[in-house]
Simulated scan of single mutants.
Amino acid sequence: MYRDLSHRIETGMQTYPGDPDVTVSQAATVSADGAAVLEVHCGSHTGTHVDAPSHTEPDGDDLEDRDVGEFVLETRFVDLAPCSPRERIGLDAIPVDLGDAGDPVDLLVVRTGYDEHWGSDDALDHPYLSPAVARTLREAGCGVGTDTLNPDPTPTENAGEDEPEGFPVHRELLGAGLPIVENLANLEGLPERFRLYAFPLPLADADGAPVRAVAELEHSRS
């Protein structure tokens, strides 16, 4: 059984502030041209996407430097929804057995419920992971997937004075070559363990790329 965890790519869809706008238009039609073709303009971090280390690390790998098998991820799922605006997610919300060598986890998938705000200004004031959580994930060799624009706080006029600045979660995880998958959707009711397929588009020199994120809910794990 499979479940699509991706946002649809469409004109005017939400992006991280300052990222390129997204347009999808008809470049050719069957009636006029004999074949239909869409013209797509977007940034490398459009919609549901995976970050490469080069997104924040000056000497980090691009996506094309990674083996495609690295985007088949054994996950641990935690459901924290509903979270409050700009809520700091701390260590008490994170499973303590992520580093269990007998049952490895590649990605912690965190549901905050903020995919329900997709396309609105409310989505910018999403919950975020504390730097302590990022350090714990790095020590466990585990990346993170979220249903938010960012595992770090996204700057808005509602930001608190005690919020971390910049991209500490990105730097901690991408600096260790661990995956970050952002803007996941449709996470409600997922099992505690599942396999995630998050193959990025093969963009040249990619610091990130959209993915079709698909959860395999029933499989035999070796």
Rank of each mutant, 00 (worst) to 15 (best):
A32Y: 05
P153F: 02
H219R: 08
D162C: 04
A215P: 02
R76H: 05
A52G: 10
L107T: 05
V109Y: 02
L149W: 09
D61M: 14
D122K: 14
D19N: 11
G69L: 02
L107V: 14
A28V: 05
D207W: 04
R8V: 15
G69H: 07
R212V: 01
S25K: 12
P104R: 01
E218R: 00
N150K: 03
V24N: 14
A123G: 12
Y16M: 15
N150L: 04
A36P: 03
D4R: 01
S44L: 14
T156R: 03
L173I: 10
S220W: 00
D61N: 13
L129N: 09
N183S: 11
G189A: 08
V105D: 04
C83R: 12
E87K: 04
E172F: 05
V105F: 01
D97N: 11
E39T: 09
A28Q: 11
E70K: 01
D59H: 15
T75C: 12
A215S: 01
L173A: 06
T23N: 12
G141A: 07
N150Y: 03
D103C: 02
G69T: 08
T112S: 12
L91Y: 03
F77R: 09
P58H: 15
T56E: 12
P85D: 12
E139T: 04
Y16L: 15
H7P: 01
R195I: 00
L137Y: 10
C42N: 04
G12C: 10
P85S: 09
N158Q: 04
R135H: 13
L190Q: 10
L73Y: 05
V144F: 10
F194S: 02
L203T: 09
D115G: 11
L196T: 00
H170W: 11
N158F: 02
L196Q: 01
D121G: 12
C83D: 08
G145Y: 09
P168K: 01
L108R: 06
V144P: 15
S130Y: 01
Y114A: 09
D59P: 11
E139P: 06
T136C: 08
T154N: 12
A209K: 03
Y197N: 01
Y128Q: 06
T156S: 05
P168T: 07
L129P: 13
P82A: 15
S25R: 15
L190R: 03
S31F: 01
G34T: 02
F199N: 02
G34P: 08
T29K: 00
G47Y: 04
H45Q: 15
S44F: 10
A36Y: 05
E172C: 13
L184I: 08
L98Y: 04
P200R: 03
C42S: 07
